[in-house]
Write a protein that binds this DNA or RNA. Structure first.
Lengths: 216, 216
DNA sequence: CGCCGATTAAAACAGGCGTTTAATTTAAAC
DNA sequence: GTTTAAATTAAACGCCTGTTTTAATCGGCG
């Protein structure tokens, strides 16, 4: 069973793939319906509009990822937090479990986030904070506990640098992996990249604070 | 003198602004010529095509930035390299001197890079390596000297994470600065952000290498 | 079977895109 | 002042976009 997908799911699967590769605005409904092998009008029939389709694609991933992340952060908080690595590692499981939606779910989700972030900056951030603001706050709180020596402002900036490095790494992860393969025979899956990323991010977040007078 | 700009420069100035904000494909020639207050056809008259306009916009910044960076890296190599911060700091001057092209030149250049990177990944990277590959190699060599304990593969990945964090920070820098202003009364210019970024990036690049067995 | 709501299908809609054409205006050289 | 090339302009080109409309088809139920 579950061999033949309904039209709605065929659209979602084709759309998330193309959105992740090209961004939302650069992907046309004709591309999506062509790849999904369904009629053009079926997008508007099942979802109402392109914008609603985008939200449906994001929702499927958010709904899987956010509660799982929240769970792990909550558990860690209960145990006491000692290092940034611990906190960042809470992301690994939830990110990898996105592969239950799609074998490439991890890359796709982070790519979607990256495109959403840069295409409709304020809009998405507002949406995310409204719907999952408590998860973001919990994460921030965990990072604060792991880095009590750092100011709130410093952590704010460093967490956004972290988001940038993560999203960017995944968006161009495949291309980079091909280069790495050619240059020194080392390819990397999305999971591999996350493993390389975490020590880097943790060190960056926890770096000693520089005084304003210590100019470069 | 130099009070009234020629059509060609009016186009370039309007285009770089819109390209940086929205990306290349999402910016239309009608937007550009409307903002520049020139006729639509003048883009094709002066530049030949939209693609050629994009290259002209990038070229103006590359030509200013790359030689200056190369100069500083060369000087540093001559003095001997001790820390990652030293190497990263070589970017600050050349980035800030882009403000001679445009007061917002630093943000614009990094935004352009980010959009170019994610819109035409392979294409731009190939172009950059062909034209400025020696600068990239020199930079990589500097980073290697500053981090002799790290493998080439590790540095490869970490430098791309670094590029991601930098580009992302600048692309969404203004929006983040507004949030920071609202949340804890601290705004930030592009220069401020670079100052916050460098200790973060240097710590990430120089983080202790983790063995493959040390799973998260 | 005949019905009937749900779904799919093909076609057309208005609007935006990059580009091209042809006519006009500008400005410098003689 | 006339000539000539450069620059600007308005209009149209063909193509692609998201959306809507209208008709055809499918599936379960009485």
């Amino acid at each position: 069973m579950a061999k033949v997908l309904k039209t709605k799911d065929k659209i979602l699967n084709a759309a998330e793939r193309l959105f992740a590769d090209q961004g939302f605005e650069l992907t046309s409904l004709r591309q999506i319906t062509g790849a999904a092998d369904v009629n053009l009008a079926s997008v508007n029939y099942h979802f109402g509009s392109k914008k609603a389709l985008i939200q449906a694609v994001m929702e499927r991933y958010h709904a899987q990822f956010m509660p799982e992340l929240d769970e792990r952060l909550k558990t860690l908080e209960g145990q006491g937090i000692n290092s940034t690595e611990e906190v960042l590692s809470c992301f690994v499981g939830p990110l990898l479990s996105l592969q239950r939606i799609n074998p490439l779910g991890t890359e796709i989700y982070l790519s979607l986030l990256g495109h959403a972030y840069s295409e409709i900056q304020g809009h998405l951030r507002r949406f995310t904070m409204q719907n999952f603001g408590h998860v973001v706050q919990r994460f921030f709180h965990c990072i604060q506990q792991a880095n009590p020596h750092l100011s709130v402002a410093t952590l704010f900036w460093r967490l956004h640098f972290t988001l940038g490095a993560t999203v960017f790494a995944q968006v161009s992860g495949q291309a980079l992996s091909e280069i790495a393969q050619a240059d020194f025979g080392e390819s990397a899956t999305a999971e591999d990249i996350v493993g390389k990323l975490i020590p880097y991010l943790a060190a960056g977040i926890g770096a000693a604070e520089v005084s304003a007078s210590a100019r470069l």
